[in-house]
């Protein structure tokens, strides 16, 4: 395997809440190859955005390694961090608040060049024009202000800005969730094109499972601060090996009423437990329809899954001993359909 663009090892992020510690990301590890997109999915409170922000040190990690190429971002000093910043960029969810309203598009796009690149003003202007066209905006828009654009166009500008320095990695934090469905896919397509042209790696943080599958060949699923399953998207979505992944996927309503009526769904009971006081053992056990005694006692082992990736769940080594097989087989065996557990 080629050297990964990004390798994250046991990343931990803690917040101080009063006198207590909130473990927002716990031992998060993953890799992204150059030019690859890794999807990071999870619900609110899963720690997916925290992990994304921590990669860029927009939130300080408490421990762990963040290797961008062979530099450890986690331990970089101020000057080194500034140099690293041009290699990693971010696109935020809300294109209304992430662009300075008092700057023109040209100023917004040249700012990264002024800070990080030694370029003549005329070269900068040419670079801006070229970038605007590559994100599907007329170069003549450079003199306008953000308020003159729609949400989708603003997101194009935000993407253009993130790409100005040809970064190795861009963290996309919910890049389309503020957009209408009809314009969402324009942005998704643009992201794919931009990536194909630049070879930039993406970490796509999103709650929309379909968007993530569409964009990412590989996906990691987070729950309450931990990655519970990773693997090739096709395998994870079609043959999930962790009960949370299975529940998450089955909860998304599919736009076909006939299929909805016959769908076999896992409906989770309870709510996300407080991250200040996470359950012992497996963090998902309080909502898991298949929880066993051992789940409260011991942290689940990480098991290799058939078809690629890993899952952290006791079901693979205890009880039904799935041994890396997907949950679908198990659910069919036990004739488990829609169910609800109350906690």
């Amino acid at each position: 395997m080629t050297t990964p663009c990004l390798r994250v090892e046991n990343l931990n992020v803690m917040y101080d809440v009063g006198k207590r510690k909130l473990h927002a990301a716990k031992d998060v590890s993953f890799e992204i190859a150059p030019g690859e997109t890794l999807g990071l999915v999870g619900e609110s409170g899963s720690g997916k955005s925290t992990a994304g922000l921590a990669l860029l040190r927009l939130i300080e990690p408490s421990s762990g390694k963040i290797m961008l190429g062979d530099t450890n971002v986690a331990t970089a000093g101020r000057r080194e961090l500034q140099l690293l910043r041009k290699r990693m960029q971010m696109v935020f969810q809300d294109p209304y608040s992430s662009l300075n309203p008092s700057m023109t598009i040209e100023q917004l796009l040249t700012e990264p060049l002024i800070v990080h690149a030694d370029m003549a003003a005329s070269d900068r202007r040419a670079a801006v024009g070229k970038m605007l066209e590559s994100v599907g905006l007329h170069a003549g828009y450079a003199a306008r202000y953000p308020h003159e654009f729609s949400g989708g166009q603003r997101q194009r500008i935000a993407i253009a800005r993130s790409m100005m320095l040809h970064p190795d990695l861009v963290v996309l934090d919910e890049p389309v969730s503020a957009l209408d469905v009809s314009t969402q896919s324009q942005i998704l397509k643009l992201l794919k094109n931009v990536q194909a042209a630049s070879g930039t790696a993406f970490l796509l943080v999103a709650h929309d499972l379909a968007v993530v599958r569409l964009m990412s060949p590989r996906v990691a699923v987070m729950y309450l601060g931990e990655i519970v399953e990773t693997g090739p998207s096709a395998r994870v979505y079609d043959e999930p090996a962790h009960p949370y992944t299975a529940a998450l996927i089955s909860a998304v309503p599919f736009p076909d009423p006939v299929r909805q009526r016959s769908a076999n769904r896992i409906i989770l009971g309870g709510d996300l437990p407080s991250p200040l006081n996470p359950p012992s053992g497996c963090r998902f056990r309080t909502r898991c329809p298949f929880a066993m005694d051992i789940c409260a006692r011991a942290a689940p082992p990480t098991v290799q899954v058939e078809g690629g990736g890993v899952a952290a769940c006791h079901l693979h080594t205890e009880g039904p001993k799935l041994g890396g097989r997907s949950l679908n087989a198990f659910m069919r065996e036990r004739n488990i359909g829609a169910m609800e557990v109350t906690t």
Partner: peptide, 25 residues
């Protein structure tokens, strides 16, 4: 039909890219 074809879920099912409705609302 445009709304349906723009949905990532529908596109995945059909094995194609979602088709955006051009322009804005």
């Amino acid at each position: 039909t445009g709304l349906l074809r723009a949905m990532p879920q529908v596109a995945l099912e059909r094995g194609e890219d979602p088709v955006a409705i051009p322009g804005t609302v």
